[in-house]
Design a protein around this nucleic acid. Structure first.
Lengths: 145, 145
DNA sequence: TAATATAAGTCAATAAAGCTGACTATTAAA
DNA sequence: TTTAATAGTCAGCTTTATTGACTTATATTA
């Protein structure tokens, strides 16, 4: 097998560490916005996931965030009470609870997003459309089981 | 300003969420290895960061992981006691404590890495050298302040 | 050299996030 | 109509991280 430099263990290892740091940095940007609303990292993750996946089922959210039903519940009930997230009964399967951001939730999510947006746009500055698409493609593949 | 599709807010938002999921999935792969050694996510993050940055200072580690000195300390002292990480006094500045993986630490880090490697290699399968380099470049830019 | 600043470590109390286990209620499928 | 799936809940616990108030060692600078 040919020795592709970019597939060497040290390069892959570095990429794993870069992902840790990229996530850590991106998700620490909205610190002030979250604090203002008395939200923590768990709320942030939840709001972000529901924003990009409107109508997501509780079970899928658990898989996505890789936390237990009980852990999710505490944060979710809090956000429902504060009218950031709303629930509706699934019409195909009545056992499902579909989650959406409320208007209030959308506003907060936008506020959060605005603090993160700059970082990503800056990173894409010297990239062209294809490169961004490839970046996204790779991220998606990393997620795939 | 031209409307570049790939710079639209929804695309950026999606990328932020993909990063969350890519990190979450990649860092849940070594669950069994970590459990066997009674390590948690905090240990994992620390081992990974020291592996890829041998000789890193405590202060830099705190910046990288975005946790407090006291949070780091608990986990770090545990790993030093278990002889996973070693410390040495900085020779340029004697106040610094430089951190390294021990031989034992390197073995565990390899074991952890092996569970994560497959996922990344799979993601890079259909990418060429340039695309991987670009992926890495973007990750680095996302990290930059 | 004496005063000050920086890097790291520590103690204590608390909060946030997540876990396991044991249940209940509702709805769907066999 | 029994069984399975989905969601919710209660209780107790662990892990991770925080704030605040120190100490110790080493560097810097006045």
């Amino acid at each position: 097998m040919q020795d592709f430099l970019y597939l060497r263990e040290n390069n892959i290892k570095e990429i794993i560490e870069l992902m840790l740091e990229a996530y850590t940095n991106s998700y620490s940007d909205p610190y002030e916005v979250l604090k203002k609303n008395s939200f923590g990292k768990a709320h942030h993750r939840l709001i972000c996931a529901v924003d990009i996946n409107p109508g997501i089922k509780v079970a899928d959210l658990i898989k996505k965030l890789k936390i237990t039903k009980q852990s999710l519940s505490r944060v979710l009930q809090e956000l429902i009470k504060k009218e950031i997230i709303s629930q509706s009964k699934g019409d195909i399967d009545g056992r499902h609870r579909l989650l959406y951001l409320t208007e209030k939730g959308k506003k907060i999510s936008e506020e959060i997003f605005n603090t993160q947006k700059k970082r990503i746009l800056e990173a894409f500055k010297e990239s062209d459309s294809n490169e961004v698409l490839n970046f996204k493609k790779v991220l998606k593949k990393i997620i795939a089981e």
